[in-house]
Computed example of a mutant assay.
Amino acid sequence: MEPRVARFAPAACSRLVVKIGSALLVDGDGKVRRDWLAGVLDDLVERHRAGQGIVIVSSGAIALGARRLGLPKGGRASLEDAQAAAATGQIALSQVYAELLHERGLTAAQMLVTLDDLEDRRRFLNASATLERLLSLGVVPVLNENDSVATAEIRFGDNDRLAARVAQAAGAGGVLLLSDVDGLYTANPASDPNATFIETVEKLDARIEAMADARSASGLGSGGMVAKLQAAKIANAAGAHLAILSGKVDHPLARFAETGRGTVFVASGGARAKKAWLAGRLTAKGRLSIDAGAAKALRDGRSLLAAGVTAVAGRFERGDVIEVWTDDGAVARGLAAYSNDEAARLAGTRNDAQEVILGYAPRSAMIHRDHLVLL
Rank of each mutant, 00 (worst) to 15 (best):
S94L: 12
L69G: 05
A82V: 12
R104F: 03
A85H: 04
G60I: 13
I56A: 06
E99D: 10
L69W: 03
V55S: 01
A108T: 04
L100G: 04
A108I: 04
G53Q: 12
R123Y: 00
A63S: 15
R76P: 07
L100H: 08
P72D: 06
E80N: 13
A77N: 05
A108G: 01
D116P: 04
I91Q: 11
E99W: 06
T107A: 02
L115V: 14
E119F: 10
A98E: 10
Q95A: 15
V96K: 09
R121S: 01
L125Q: 01
M111L: 15
I54F: 01
H102K: 12
H102A: 15
E80A: 13
Q110W: 05
G89Y: 08
T88H: 03
A82R: 13
A109D: 00
Q95I: 07
V113G: 02
G60A: 05
G89L: 09
L93C: 06
L64A: 02
H102E: 08
I54G: 00
I62G: 02
R123Q: 05
Y97T: 12
A50D: 08
I91K: 14
G53W: 07
Q52A: 05
V57W: 04
I56R: 11
L112V: 14
Y97S: 06
G70I: 15
M111R: 12
G70F: 09
Q52L: 06
T88C: 14
Q83E: 02
Q83F: 04
G105T: 13
V113L: 14
L79Q: 11
R49Y: 01
I54W: 03
T114I: 10
T114A: 05
R104Y: 03
L71V: 13
A85L: 03
L118I: 09
A92F: 11
S59M: 10
R121A: 00
L115K: 11
G74E: 00
S78V: 12
D116R: 07
A82P: 12
V96S: 07
I62F: 00
A63C: 10
A84P: 11
R67A: 15
Q110S: 08
H102T: 15
I91H: 15
A84G: 11
S94C: 14
Q90C: 11
A50F: 07
G65P: 11
Q90L: 11
D81G: 09
Q83G: 06
L115N: 04
G51I: 13
A86I: 10
E103M: 10
L93E: 02
L106I: 02
R76Q: 12
R76S: 03
L115D: 04
T114Y: 02
L106T: 00
L69V: 10
G53D: 09
D116W: 00
I91D: 03
A85I: 10
L106S: 00
D81Y: 13
A63E: 04
A98G: 11
Q95N: 13
L118P: 06
L100C: 03
A77V: 13
V113H: 02
G89V: 14
Q110H: 14
F124C: 05
R76N: 09
L112A: 09
